[in-house]
Amino acid sequence: MSEETAGILEGAVPPARNPHLYGHQTAEDFLARSYRSGKGHHAILIEGPEGIGKATLAFRFANHVLSHPDPATAPDHLTDPDLNSSVSRQIASGASHNLLHLARPVDEKTGKTKTAITVDEVRRAGHFFSQTSGTGNWRIVIIDPADDLNRNAANAILKILEEPPRRALFLVLSHAPGKLLPTIRSRCQSLRLSPLGDSDLAKALAGLGTPLDGGKMEEMVLRMSKGSVSQALKLLNYGGTEIISAFEEVVAADGPTARKAMHRLADVLSGKDSEVIFGFFLEHLGDHLIDKARNAALAGDLPTADRQAKLVSDMTEKITIAQAYNLDRKQTILSILEAARR
């Protein structure tokens, strides 16, 4: 597994190789016009929910800049990359000397993606700029996502953002910008992307060879994915719809029936190669608890609202501890499910 393909879902196309983007024409036009003006910001914070096209937009804009190094003669709009051009081929293969993609690295020993972007990865940016400083070309760094920077890495990035090299462009991606260092946010120009509408989501899935076939399944995917292509792929290709149904059974059942349902679900979520669907379940459970807290608050039942909100933080803490100490995942899941049923 290469770092360029690590974390890519089944049925998805790595953003560096994806020639199509749906639903973000306004953002594309803004970036193109800003670049052409010659007054564009050196750091763009591209923010929005996970899986809606932020990374694809970043690589698409990087391709535009490197294909048109003189802003004054660049088109005022972005076009689909020419996959046969030398710029596009270099970007797609990760071989561009003018583009650096910072993401969570792959652990060489385990073959798994590490849990954070470390300061060692950020040092690559310093080396990248020193190696290309005499070329006069644009140098672009995509941080994907900045949410994964650990504290030391975030501080190291901040130093570069405070004194950016000449003709440097940072495309900083974030699913949750409120969690970033305020000083990083203040050094960037914010560009917020919205979740995809149903039509654009359907087009994106069809473009990936996973067309929606109508009926109740399509309705469920559109509703549960919340405008995210990655969520839709988890529902369609990773058994996400079955996980949701199994969780609903756990919530609705009582006594021994509930216990059996909990064990069946925990077995699936703790099985081999279950990382993607386990993460999907945690997101769904978090949303479920937050919705219960919100509904309780709206009904004036503040004790219940507080209890449900606390369950979210307790769940996060349990998962963090279980991962840090390599505890039995099935038992952790059973504990979480038991708490969620109360």
Rank of each mutant, 00 (worst) to 15 (best):
A202I: 07
A154C: 11
C188E: 14
L158W: 10
Q189H: 09
R187I: 07
R223A: 15
A153L: 11
P145D: 11
E162T: 04
P195R: 11
S133V: 08
F247I: 05
H175Y: 03
E162G: 12
S133Q: 11
L201G: 00
A168N: 00
M220D: 15
N150Q: 03
S245H: 03
G197D: 13
I184Y: 11
K179T: 12
R185I: 15
A153R: 05
I160A: 11
N150R: 09
E248L: 02
R192A: 15
I142E: 03
F170I: 01
P211K: 00
P211V: 04
E162W: 10
A204S: 06
S194T: 13
L208G: 07
A168Q: 02
K159W: 11
A202M: 06
L173T: 11
M224D: 01
E218K: 01
I143S: 12
N152L: 02
L205E: 09
A156K: 08
G227F: 11
E162D: 10
L235N: 04
V172G: 14
L201I: 06
T135L: 08
L212R: 04
G214I: 14
A176N: 15
G134T: 08
S133L: 07
L208A: 00
D200V: 01
L173M: 07
I184T: 08
A206V: 01
V229W: 01
R185K: 10
L158C: 03
E248F: 07
I140K: 12
D144M: 12
N237L: 06
G209I: 07
M217D: 15
V229H: 02
L222D: 09
A206T: 15
V141H: 01
H175A: 15
T241M: 14
G240P: 10
N152Y: 03
V141S: 05
P177L: 09
K159L: 07
L193M: 13
V141A: 06
A206C: 15
I140L: 03
L149P: 03
K234L: 02
R166Q: 15
A246K: 00
S186C: 13
S245Q: 05
A156R: 02
G239Q: 01
G197P: 13
T135Q: 11
L161N: 04
T210S: 08
Y238W: 02
K203G: 07
